[in-house]
């Protein structure tokens, strides 16, 4: 049993498909920026590193008001690099396992807490999956032990990769391609189902909003 010490959040992207003209992590759900919801899930994690790029000053300013001790890692080449590069930059010089996640996701807080608890029970890699709901889903196939055995963009399944992972920095190597393509070379990897809402297009905003209202009514 060990505590999760590091969290790396990729927040450098432009969110072109949403057409906001602002970073997606600053989009509000219930009057609260997406990134604030996310940081709320990470209150117990000591070391939070956010990779910034597009409109970095706005992102830094918003985050600093919520949590002053965040370490911002600048990715000035955000237009020509992928999330994988941002993750590598965020975890540079770290040696113990980190939580890696995208900033444009609304997570059901109880599921996120379960994920952290599961990470603390083992230092093995763990990937979050969620019920398929996004248009650009990366679908996963699971074996009987609920481990991911394949990723696919075409082979539709009921579960998709949730862009939340617990990995050792050494599990990722910089290069072309997406994070899941690199993870695909290391399968099988244990998976845990969570309730999350990635926001890429206007339909996703609707889904996240509905989920947010449902979750906060339940509490």
């Amino acid at each position: 049993m060990s505590t999760v010490k590091h969290a790396v959040i990729a927040a450098a992207g432009m969110g072109t498909r949403l057409g906001l003209g602002a970073p997606k992590c600053l989009m509000e759900l219930g009057g609260i920026p997406l990134i604030a919801h996310l940081l709320g899930n990470l209150e117990k994690v000591e070391d939070v590193r956010v990779i910034t790029g597009f409109l970095e000053n706005e992102v830094m300013e918003t985050i600093s008001k919520i949590r002053k001790d965040v370490i911002f890692v600048r990715n000035p080449a955000y237009r020509s690099t992928t999330t994988l590069t941002s993750y590598m930059m965020g975890a540079a010089h770290l040696h113990s396992p980190c939580l890696f996640m995208d900033a444009d996701i609304y997570f059901n807080p109880s599921g996120f807490a379960d994920f952290i608890n599961a990470c603390e029970k083992s230092d093995e890699p763990l990937l979050a999956i969620t019920r398929t709901k996004t248009r650009d889903a990366v679908y996963v196939d699971l074996d009987e032990a609920r481990r991911i055995i394949s990723f696919s963009r075409d082979h539709v399944t009921g579960m998709e990769w949730a862009n939340l992972a617990f990995l050792s920095p050494g599990d990722l190597q910089d290069g072309p391609g997406a994070v899941f393509e690199q993870l695909a070379t290391r399968l099988p990897i244990a998976a845990l189902e969570i309730d999350s809402y990635e926001i890429d297009c206007p339909e996703d905003v609707e889904l996240a909003m509905t989920a947010y209202q449902r979750i906060n009514r339940d509490y």
């Binding site: 910034t52 000053n57 002053k68 370490i71 890692v73 600048r74």
Partner: peptide, 14 residues
């Protein structure tokens, strides 16, 4: 300065 930096930090512990 921020624009040529690798990291931006606002608190001495971090």
């Amino acid at each position: 300065l921020m624009q040529i930096s690798d990291y931006v930090i606002n608190e001495s512990n971090s």
